[in-house]
Design a protein around this nucleic acid. Structure first.
Lengths: 66, 66
DNA sequence: ACAAAATGTAAAGTTTATTTGTCATATTGG
DNA sequence: CCAATATGACAAATAAACTTTACATTTTGT
């Protein structure tokens, strides 16, 4: 799983804190997510996609190892 | 999180076992997923969407409580 | 009706997501 | 330059996803 949350967040000019608050997770979750440290839940993915007005697949991409 | 995996599976005429095998999870995971017992990971959601050739949002829908 | 296949469900265990707390470093604005 | 804000990172704890095993019920095909 790759994601480009960091880029989307930059586009929308939000801090990790802001973003975390808007979708109801902790800042560390956003930080670790951007660092590719884990795969988020579908709820989280859908909320991010909705907030960024993007398709889920435009933010999250399956990798061969998934 | 609502989902219509059961419907998609019916459309594609797959058993829970088949589907589980194709996306690499256990049958019980599919069963529980269809029963709405938990929120799947984004990897699982993306794999299902890919297999069913649907948008993730056509299979999974956020609910007000999410 | 019978047997096989499919589904529902549940408990126990393992792995992974997410939180909370904390600290160090970097970046930004006055 | 200084102070505030933002980011990176880590560890311990909790919650939730997912597996395995197992069994009961339902559905399907002959």
């Amino acid at each position: 799983m790759k994601n480009n949350v960091k880029v989307q967040r930059a586009i929308h000019n939000l801090t990790q804190q802001d973003l975390a608050g808007r979708i109801g997770v902790s800042r560390q979750t956003i930080n670790a997510l951007e660092a590719g440290k884990y795969v988020p839940s579908t709820v989280l993915a859908l909320k991010l996609a909705k907030l960024f007005e993007k398709d889920v697949t435009e933010i999250f991409e399956l990798e061969p190892t998934d």
